[in-house]
Write a protein that binds this DNA or RNA. Structure first.
Lengths: 352, 352
DNA sequence: CTGAAAGCGCTAACAG
DNA sequence: CTGTTAGCGCTTTCAG
């Protein structure tokens, strides 16, 4: 065995050096190695140097979980829980979360929420993730009383996006305002018969989002002395395909709505497909407004209500790490800005 | 303290029961609890029942990392490494990976590859993640010789997507064929002056992807007795905005290309914006073909070369878990299918 | 300033 | 079938 080769402690595992290996190599005790490597005081400079050299030689990397176990400390990892990953919204939220976590030296676990059916059972139980994780971010995943209690009991730091709970900080947008803004824009353009591409019909993951947005739209419509026809609210599951189907249904209603309000840009994209299929021109025959400001909304000139989704994730993560760093502050409920972005998909209604 | 209250072992931690607590509550040894709860044989049915009841009462959940430590076993978690999360491609790959991991009971860590600059340093070192993880999936993240060696030395199971390395299984598509297919389609429509929206100019993350696709396009073009003008290859960073700029540049060239080949749908969306800004009609003035089959490609009627991205992630994860389950097979290099999807954005070139 | 020793929560022989 | 005894790799008193 050539010099410099890692000292093998026990077994034939030549591939992973332990603190013991480093200790032997440096000619000190494991306790000293531990102190030296963690930059604790009370270690002679010369000793520390020797230890660091040995650690580098051996390519030693401490086992974080053994540390956690021994120290009773946190594991420096957090989880983000989303209904699913491959949608623009969630991917962007996760990106924001990840950036901040990485920056703070935290590992990020991504968990998809169990199906609504499974949601019936204990959330925490479903993940069995206490102990492996210091904190969690729930994105549009409904937490009931029991969940909140359990999470609290487990001393988990929690931040929610899209839901306000008593004990946990949250990052939100005013979804009522979102719906109102979009509808107002359409009303100002002279539209009175407005179809809505909404969320799930049942078992909602995004429980309150569609409702709030619809409520806002209704506010604006009623305020204008009009009414929101329940027949013109069709679920589109927040997906392109769902939006296509929903728009297909809406555009078949008579009289046809003169404007469509999609509760997400992706559903709006579906509406674009449906309109094309039916030979209906946007905005010539019908105006269309979405929500999100997906990059593609710009590409297709979709009028939309923008929200800064990456920022939401980043703020939530920042709040979480902040909590984890011991700040015992009142849970803050941030309200992120929204903004109407007018593009070519909405147009003043042609007077018949 | 009422009956049923968790027995406290040591300290005042009333919130997390240990195997010891369960043992006391059930009146057995910790070893028995361990066996009972893990469904090992050699446990009396009655004992097992008692232990399970106690565990349930105490809301006991084993500490996976303590188990791992004790058993020298794996930690049942894997990491997926991507350049970034919030792009259609990576979000979908991650979704595929996540689904399979969750199904197999593995936790999924999401890591973004350090900047190319940071990539210079040891990848593994950068993440410091040996031991916390059983395996890794690298998605379009270049692994050099040293990385491969280190990963192997650490006994990490590895699967790559978008790169073939000697020792690790991989999931790929034939990117040369992608470029060839797209270009051929344009050529068949009579186009001879084809602009390409390519990848990064320097410091490529998706190192070989753009090159291969361009090579394929060149193959097809040369085979048709034409040539690919280097001035008509402009980097677009695989983003909508990058594509917009690149297309702006290309559409300013004289003579203007009659067709644009975007190496990703997102860049193609950017091209759509650029064309609109310049008052250029697609496909009237210029044809446009993308790669991916983004949901939105359908919405805007974009001709594209489809790849099943979620499937890529799923296959990679399946291969990884397979390896983790001890299958010591030759690393397979799966080649996933691609398919030309013709829509409205490409049209036969008007003879001048 | 440093080492010895006692665990963290759990599993793995090895005896019974 | 079940309890006892060692640790896994690391941190942390507590003595030097």
């Amino acid at each position: 065995m050539s010099p410099g080769t890692p000292t093998i402690s026990r077994g034939a595992e030549t591939w992973r050096s332990t603190i013991q290996d480093v200790a032997s190599a440096a000619g000190v005790s494991v306790a000293t190695v531990s102190r030296a490597l963690r930059g604790l005081p009370n270690v002679a400079v010369t000793t520390r140097a020797r230890v660091e050299a040995a650690a580098r030689d051996l390519n030693y990397r401490p086992d974080r979980h053994a540390s956690r176990l021994a120290a009773g400390r946190r594991s420096r990892s957090v989880a983000v829980v989303v209904p699913f990953i491959n949608s623009w919204y969630f991917a962007n939220v996760i990106a924001g979360v990840e950036a901040v976590c990485a920056d703070g030296g935290y590992d990020l676990l991504v968990l998809t929420a169990p199906s609504p059916a499974a949601r019936a059972m204990n959330l925490v139980d479903a993940f069995g993730l206490d102990r492996r994780i210091d904190g969690m971010i729930f994105v549009e995943v409904a937490l009931d009383e029991a969940d909140v209690e359990e999470l609290t009991r487990l001393r988990l730091a929690v931040v929610t996006i899209g839901q306000r709970t008593r004990p946990f900080p949250s990052v939100n947008i005013d979804n009522v305002a979102v719906g109102r803004t979009a509808a107002q824009h359409l009303i100002e353009l002279g539209h009175s018969r407005i179809g809505v591409l909404a969320g799930q019909a049942e078992d909602p993951v995004n429980f309150n989002v569609p409702d709030d947005r619809i409520a806002g739209a209704r506010d604006a419509i009623v305020a204008a002395g009009l009414e929101l026809d329940p027949d013109l609210i069709v679920p589109g599951q927040f997906t392109v395909e769902g939006g296509r189907r929903a728009a297909g249904t809406l555009l078949a209603r008579t009289p046809m709505p003169t404007a469509l309000l999609a509760l997400s840009d992706e559903m709006a994209f579906g509406a674009v497909i449906a309109a094309r299929e039916l030979g209906i021109d946007i905005p010539g025959d019908v105006s269309l407004v979405g929500v999100d400001d997906h990059e593609v909304a710009q590409a297709i000139g979709l009028t939309t209500v923008r929200q800064e989704v990456v920022e939401h994730g980043a703020r939530a993560a920042a709040a979480l790490l902040h909590t984890l760093l011991g700040a015992r502050v009142e849970p803050t409920h941030e309200l992120q800005p929204i903004e109407l972005v007018v593009r070519g998909s909405t147009r003043r209604r042609a007077v018949p």
